[in-house]
Amino acid sequence: MTQLDAKVPTIVATEHVARARRRRRTSVFWLALPLVAIAVLVVVLPMTGLLADPRQTDLDNTLAPPVFLDGGSWDNPLGTDKLGQDVLAQLVVGGRLTLFIGLVGALVAIGPGTLIGVLAGYCRGWVDLVVSRLIDAQLALPFILIALAVISSQGSSLPVLFLVLALTGWAACARVTRSVAMTLRERQFVLGLRAAGASEPRIVLRHVVPNLVGTIVALGTLQIGTAILVESALSFLGLGVVPPDISWGAMLASGQDVLSRAWWVATFPGLAITVVVLLVNLLGDALLTHHDPRKRRR
């Protein structure tokens, strides 16, 4: 591969690489843009005062239909739930918590996962042996079993949710960073630095980790999607976010009871989850093909 590349005149090669980069950068940009817009929206919109109070119950106006159905009004554009709370306001405010859980949930999985993966992939030896076994054992346990085990002893709360996300998410990340660190370790520039007298911690921190950043960002992005789906499932079962806190998952739980009478209560938060997770997955895929050092040698 390199041999072939070396024969391409520099200018052409640089031109070609630059064009490919620009193309990938645009697709990443157009996927990230709506996500950022959604995040800004759910943060800013409640401050403007345009929305109803999401926790204001109105027992005279329960299960009001959305504006585009018969009997709907602009007072509650997406209708109301069984307590007469405004679905649109709940959707926006719930989005804050859901996106926050997605972000933090990804961070708590990626952090330890990366650390363990790099350590195992770079040090090899018995560290690697132990870690590989742990990863296997972890991946053999379906996430729901871990969630059940933790929640049954800890009860459900936001910190417990993050604990579950960390415990279920680290292994997948560790597996990828381990294999990338392993290939980086064999690269000649690492040998060259060692020959120049660089210490191992220096090589790892200044050369291996920076070359992993792209991969870590991509994995973290995909993990946001997973975290949002886990949050919605656990909250739906009453094991994650519980009222009075509002998240998209908790909204689905309250919509379940009235599904046959008021479809809109469960439909809108479900759509919101699907759209956000889809965008996040597309973005993560785009970043992953962009940054995988094994797919792109130069």
């Binding site: 390199t2 590349d5 070396a6 690269r187 000649q188 520039f189 040998l191 060259g192 630095l193 060692r194 020959a195 120049a196 007298g197 210490s199 050369h207 920076p210 070359n211 040698r297 130069r298």
Partner: peptide
Amino acid sequence: RALRPEVQVVFQDPHGSLDPR
């Protein structure tokens, strides 16, 4: 480590020998 700089290696793959970042 102190002795290492006395011996330097030039590898086959020049691009692989330089940190891409």
